[in-house]
Each structure stands twice: as structure tokens, then as C-alpha cells.
Computed example of a mutant assay.
Amino acid sequence: MIMAFDRYVAICNPLRYAAIMTNTMVIKLTVSAWGVAFVLVGILLGLTVRLNRCRSMIMNPYCDNASLFKLSCESVYINNVYGLTFTVVLFTASIGSIVLTYTKITVVCLTSKNKTLNSKALKTCSTHLVVYLIMVFSGMSLIALHRFPEYADYRKLSSILFHIIPGSLNPIIYGMQSKEVRKFLSKLFEPKKILP
């Protein structure tokens, strides 16, 4: 959400960027993002810690909150309601802010006749959007698969891929924007000329 806001300011208010995105604003945005995450996750952990456990085997490759719920013999209804509400609110806020900012960016690009601005905006926003969509798809598939016990093997694979795919693709997707990286890769994969 912060990256979407940053791109919005950079593209829609380029002359005021330095005045809007000050060090103070960046600190406020960062603290608010981390603060909201700590509060929401703290509540989730508090709800999880209160549960008694009658099982001890976690069926996931790593210990996540949903796996801890499955160890309990008590009702986890409150945990499920809070967890799903938490997920829906975060995804709605995230997707909503990105749709809003990218819609405004699109309007600016469509009304502007500056092809350089439009090209730069498209490159910047498309990479961010691709990385974001990969992360959202990976996260949503993992959350959905936790609801279907018959797909436990797919959930295990999905949970591993959730930690590998987005993190591995980030440097590739953002790196392809760099002319130096593109030039290096084109030389690397360029067919070699063989002298007769």
C-alpha cells in the first residue's frame, strides 16, 4: 500500500513529491504499517495462546497460526472468525488502495500527452503490480487450502511456494527494469559466433 501511494505521488504530483514524501512522512507510513501488523498479529497470537492443545503433530512444513488451531481440541470458532476478518480487512484495504491509486495514475496517463511519463509510469507500476499479484495469489491459495483438509498435500506445497516464489521473483522482476541487467542478460544469452 505504501509503494502504491509512493508511485501515486511520484506520477500524479511529481513537482510536489519531495514536499509530500519527506523523511517524516516515510517514517509515519512505516510505523503505521508495522504498528497495525503488530497489533493485529498480537491479538491473533493472544487468541491462539489461550487454547489447550491435545495434539502435537503439525502437518505443515512450518508452524503457522492455522496449524496451531488444528492442534486444539477446543472450539476455535473465535480464532477462525478473527483470522478470516483480519484477512478480509487487510486484503480489502490493500487491494482497495492499489485499485484507487492505480486508477488515478491511469487517468493521469490517459489525459497526459507525455509519452515519456506514460512509459515510465507503465514500467514502474506494472512491476509493482506483478509482484503484488504474485504475493496475493500465493497468500490467498494458502489461506483457501487450509479450509479443505482433503488437499493437505497441495497446502504443504503451496506453503513452501509461498515463501519461495514471491521472494525469488522480486529481484528478477525489479531487476529487469535496469538497463544494465537487461544488457548483461542479452549478452549472456546471445548466440556465440563461431569462426570458420
Rank of each mutant, 00 (worst) to 15 (best):
S97D: 09
A66Q: 11
I78M: 10
V9D: 06
S159F: 12
M176I: 09
S97Q: 08
L185G: 02
F91D: 02
N13S: 12
L110M: 10
I165A: 03
A4S: 03
H163G: 10
N118C: 06
V31P: 12
F86H: 06
I43L: 04
L157S: 11
M59R: 13
M1Q: 02
V49G: 05
G46L: 03
L122A: 06
L68N: 06
Y154V: 03
I172G: 06
I78D: 03
V9N: 05
K123A: 06
A33I: 07
L122G: 01
S32N: 11
Y8S: 01
K183I: 14
M59K: 11
T124Y: 03
V36R: 05
L84F: 15
R16M: 13
M140Y: 07
N170A: 14
P196I: 04
F137M: 11
M140L: 14
S72V: 02
V108P: 02
S112M: 08
W34N: 07
N65F: 14
V9I: 07
E180W: 14
T24D: 06
A33W: 09
L44I: 07
Q177R: 10
A10E: 07
K104P: 00
D153P: 06
G139F: 02
S112G: 04
T111D: 07
L100M: 06
Y8P: 00
N60W: 07
V41S: 05
N52C: 07
I173N: 00
K113M: 05
P191S: 15
R16K: 15
L47S: 01
I143D: 01
V31C: 14
V107Q: 05
L51M: 08
K183M: 15
S56L: 13
T127I: 01
G83M: 07
L133G: 03
A4Y: 01
A37F: 09
Y174F: 06
M3L: 06
R53Y: 08
L129N: 02
K70T: 03
S97W: 14
K183S: 10
V31Q: 14
G42V: 02
G139D: 02
I95T: 14
A10I: 01
A33N: 06
T85V: 12
K193W: 13
E150Q: 09
K104M: 07
K115E: 03
V131K: 00
A121L: 00
T106P: 01
F91Q: 03
A37I: 04
Y154K: 05
K120N: 07
I98P: 00
